[in-house]
Amino acid sequence: MYFQHTEAIWSEHPGLVAMAITAAGITPTADVDAPVAQFVAAARARLAGGTESDLAEIKAWRQTFTKMGLKPTQYRCASEALLRRLRKEGGLPRIHPLIDLCNAVSVAYAIPVGVFDLDEVDGYLEVRHAAGDEDYLTFADTGEHPEPGEVIFADAARRAHARRWSNRQSGRSAVRPGTSRVLIVAEALHGSAAEDVPALMKTLGDAVAEAWDVAPRSAVLSAEDRRFTL
């Protein structure tokens, strides 16, 4: 089993910097209140001088969505959606300790972070262009097919685990109380992504290791070294 972006994705988005973390032994009982509060406070400090759309990390994703033919105010990357919610509602929803932790790190760094239950992924997970016949399951348990050419996270069974790249994850591989093995992915396209993504990886990897007493594996991915073996 592996995770990677296809050559076409790296070619079309040369500024992409990505990282992957995998861990086993995840449970729904870990206490992440302290790190979540710390990361959310950092995000609030960043928002104190403006809105999420002013941040370089979000601007880069908006430009990328526009390049892909998507309206960036209609389809937002995951970190922008979370930051917007934090700014408007004053907090983030609590769902599962791992999701809560990843969402908090995501808003602190303004970088999308996705988490996938590996027991629901068949063979591999690849960020690629859709053919249009892949199966996508919403959180409401309804089926969809991505648009041909759309950037998706797809597995060997031609199931889409995320649509419109960093916009919307599938309910199929979402973290649930019984989830144990996970893949965490973060991707950025802004000017300082080469420094910020490794920093996010270390921060999040250390937090996961401490909260669950596990030993995560991680790697920064590039066009030259794009495959992360799970």
Results as ranks from 00 to 15, higher is better:
A37H: 02
A37N: 02
F39K: 08
F39I: 01
A42Y: 05
A42T: 05
A43T: 00
A43C: 12
A43I: 03
R44N: 08
R46L: 05
R46N: 06
L47C: 04
L47Q: 01
A48C: 10
G49R: 09
G50L: 09
I58G: 02
I58P: 00
A60H: 04
A60P: 06
A60F: 04
W61S: 05
R62H: 10
Q63T: 03
T64S: 09
F65A: 05
T66I: 11
K67S: 12
G69Q: 10
L70S: 06
P72C: 06
T73K: 13
T73L: 10
T73W: 15
Q74R: 09
C77M: 09
C77E: 15
C77F: 03
A78R: 00
S79H: 01
A81H: 03
A81N: 03
A81C: 04
L82P: 03
L82R: 07
L82H: 07
L83C: 02
R84K: 10
R87A: 15
K88R: 11
E89W: 06
E89D: 15
E89C: 09
G91P: 01
L92C: 07
R94S: 10
I95A: 03
I95L: 04
H96N: 06
P97F: 07
P97D: 05
I99E: 02
I99Q: 04
I99P: 01
I99L: 14
D100T: 02
D100R: 02
C102H: 08
N103I: 00
A104L: 02
V105C: 15
V105N: 02
V105R: 04
V107D: 02
Y109Q: 08
Y109V: 05
Y109N: 03
I111R: 00
I111L: 13
P112G: 06
P112M: 04
V113G: 00
F116V: 09
F116C: 01
L118N: 03
D119M: 11
D119Q: 14
D119E: 13
G123D: 12
G123F: 14
H129V: 05
H129D: 12
A131G: 14
A131Q: 10
A131H: 10
A131K: 11
G132E: 15
E134L: 08
D135A: 14
D135N: 12
L137S: 09
F139Y: 01
A140K: 07
A140I: 11
D141N: 11
D141T: 06
T142L: 13
G143P: 03
G143K: 04
G143I: 12
E144A: 14
P146Q: 14
P146D: 13
E147R: 14
P148M: 07
G149T: 12
E150M: 14
V151G: 04
I152D: 02
F153M: 07
F153P: 05
F153C: 10
F153A: 10
A154L: 10
A156G: 05
A157C: 09
R158D: 15
R159T: 08
R159H: 11
R159P: 01
A160S: 14
A160H: 07
A162K: 02
R163I: 11
R163L: 14
R164P: 07
R164I: 15
W165I: 06
W165F: 15
S166G: 07
R168M: 15
Q169C: 05
Q169P: 00
S170N: 01
R172N: 10
R172Q: 12
S173Y: 04
S173L: 02
